[in-house]
Amino acid sequence: MAGAATNTPKTTKARSAKKAVAATSNTEVAKSRFNAALEEAKAGAAALTAEAKERGVGYKGDIQAKGEDYYEQAKVKAGELARDGKAKTSDALSTLGKAVADNAATIDEKFGAKYGDYARSASRSLQETAAKLDSKSVEELGEDAREAVRRNPGKAIGLAALAGFIIARLFRGK
């Protein structure tokens, strides 16, 4: 009978209530632990994000510094190439002018004095252009080119198209 007394509806309800309370408290503990783990994960993610941003700023600074170095190197190299190109162009114009002047007498004999005079005039123009090119810096030549484009944009576009056509013809396979 003692066993029967322990299984009465009151005791069964009490046990069920204890189990419900235990289940509720276990659920609350689990929720609490889960929320704590979630908050810890969020804090870890925030810390990693902050570290990644700091590293990114450092990398960005390094890349910008290298980019500026490369820019300066390219600028110096372009200046050297421009000066070399200017000197070679000036020499080529001067040489061409001398060659035309040297052949002016032959042109006089074969085609007439009128064409010889044209050759002498072309020779003088080439010599003067070579002298002007020698006397100016690359920066001055660039400014002169910009000014010419501002004064005659249609002519500049036409010359650019002609130069592009000539370059394309030079590099096109035969």
Rank of each mutant, 00 (worst) to 15 (best):
K10E: 14
D69N: 10
T11A: 10
E68T: 10
D69Y: 09
Q127M: 13
A30G: 01
T27W: 07
I166H: 01
S137P: 06
S25K: 15
G164S: 06
E28W: 07
I167W: 07
A101G: 05
I107K: 06
E54L: 02
A14C: 04
K66Q: 11
V57E: 12
L93I: 05
G61D: 07
S32Y: 03
D134P: 00
G142Q: 15
G3Y: 10
K13L: 15
L81Q: 13
S137G: 11
A30N: 03
K86I: 08
T8V: 04
K132R: 09
E128R: 11
A161K: 14
L133P: 08
E40I: 01
A131P: 01
G3S: 13
L133S: 07
A82E: 06
P153D: 04
R55P: 00
K75E: 12
F165P: 00
I166V: 13
A163C: 02
K86N: 03
V100M: 08
A5C: 06
K13Y: 12
V149C: 01
K155Q: 14
F171S: 10
K88V: 08
L126Q: 03
A130T: 03
T12C: 07
S123I: 03
Q73A: 13
A82S: 13
A65Y: 03
P153K: 00
N103W: 08
K66N: 02
S25D: 14
A74W: 05
E140K: 13
G58V: 02
E40P: 00
T27P: 01
T106H: 08
L81N: 13
G142N: 15
Q127C: 01
K98D: 15
D108M: 05
A113P: 00
T6L: 12
R15Y: 12
E54S: 06
L48E: 12
R120E: 06
A163K: 06
V138D: 08
S135R: 14
A92S: 15
A104F: 01
G67A: 07
A82Y: 06
A161L: 14
A65H: 07
N35K: 15
A45H: 02
L96D: 03
E39M: 06
K77Q: 11
G85M: 08
N26K: 15
V138E: 08
S121C: 05
N35W: 05
G3V: 14
Q64S: 06
S90Y: 04
T89Q: 10
L159T: 06
D102S: 09
A45K: 03
T24K: 15
K98R: 11
E128C: 01
R169E: 02
D108Y: 01
G164N: 04
Y118D: 13
A14S: 12
V21W: 11
Y59L: 09
A156N: 05
I107T: 14
G58F: 00
A119R: 01
D62L: 04
S137D: 12
A23K: 14
K19P: 02
R151Q: 13
T8R: 09
R33E: 12
G79K: 05
G3Q: 12
S137R: 10
S121D: 11
A17F: 09
A45R: 03
